[in-house]
Every structure is written in C-alpha cells, then in structure tokens.
Simulated assay, not measured.
Amino acid sequence: MRLRVEFTTEPFDLEEAPAHAVAAREVMRRAQLDAMDVGPFGNTAEGDSAAVLDAVTALLRDALGAGATRVSLQVNVIGEDTP
C-alpha cells in the first residue's frame, strides 16, 4: 500500500524555521520515500506504507523532542504497491 502524509509542526515562526520544523523535515528527508514537498505551512511525503509509518513515528518523536507544542498530520492511502 502507498501512503501520503501531510504534516505541520507548531508553533509557527515565519521569520526562521524553528528547530522542531527542521527536525521533522530531516526525518522525512532521511526516510526511504519517493516524493517530498516542503512548504512554509505544510509538508507532504509519499511512499511505501512501512516507510511512511516508520517516518511518522520518528517525526513525532524528533519534532516533539525539539520543542514542537503541536504536530498535525493526515495520512491517506493513495494506491496499492504492484508486486
């Protein structure tokens, strides 16, 4: 199964990316995902379900550890893997 995750971390800072936002993005960059889009108000990543779920676990741990007071995320099934 393929998944897409959309996530944001708070508190926001429009002047400079907070440590928690940087930590969350780095987790996703290190993950074995097929696609990632980073934006100022939200980020998306896609990939195999196992890779996305592992990345979401690490994202929550690292972002909260770096000072996030809220992490919002949505996970959608976008397709099935072909054997």
Rank of each mutant, 00 (worst) to 15 (best):
E80F: 09
A24I: 02
M28D: 12
D54R: 07
V71Q: 02
A50Y: 11
V38Y: 15
L59V: 03
R30D: 15
A58Y: 11
N76D: 13
P83D: 12
Q32I: 11
D62W: 08
T8G: 02
G79S: 01
F7A: 00
T8K: 06
A21Y: 05
L33H: 02
I78F: 08
A35C: 12
G42C: 05
T57Y: 12
V56Y: 10
L3Q: 07
F12K: 09
P40E: 13
M28G: 10
L3M: 08
A17K: 06
L60C: 12
D34Y: 09
D34A: 10
A58C: 12
A45E: 05
G79I: 01
L14A: 07
R2Y: 15
A35H: 12
L33P: 03
D13P: 01
E10L: 08
P11I: 05
F12Y: 12
E15C: 07
T57W: 13
P18E: 00
G79K: 00
D13K: 03
A50R: 10
G42T: 06
L3F: 08
N43M: 04
M1D: 15
A19G: 04
T44V: 08
D62L: 11
M1H: 11
E16K: 09
E10R: 10
E15Y: 08
D34Q: 14
E15F: 07
A51C: 09
E10I: 09
V22W: 03
E16L: 10
R2A: 13
A63D: 00
E15G: 06
D13A: 00
A66E: 05
A23M: 03
M1Q: 14
L73V: 09
R30Q: 14
A35V: 15
T82C: 12
D48H: 12
S72V: 13
A19S: 07
E80W: 06
Q74A: 12
L59S: 05
R2G: 11
L60Q: 13
R70Y: 04
V56G: 10
A63T: 00
A63R: 01
L33E: 02
N76A: 09
D13N: 06
P40N: 07
D54M: 04
T9C: 06
V77M: 06
A55Q: 06
M1A: 11
M28E: 12
E15D: 11
R2S: 14
T57I: 15
G65Y: 05
A58D: 15
A23K: 04
T9W: 08
G79H: 00
H20C: 01
V27W: 00
E46S: 08
M36I: 14
T82N: 10
S49M: 11
V77E: 09
D48N: 14
V75K: 01
F12I: 01
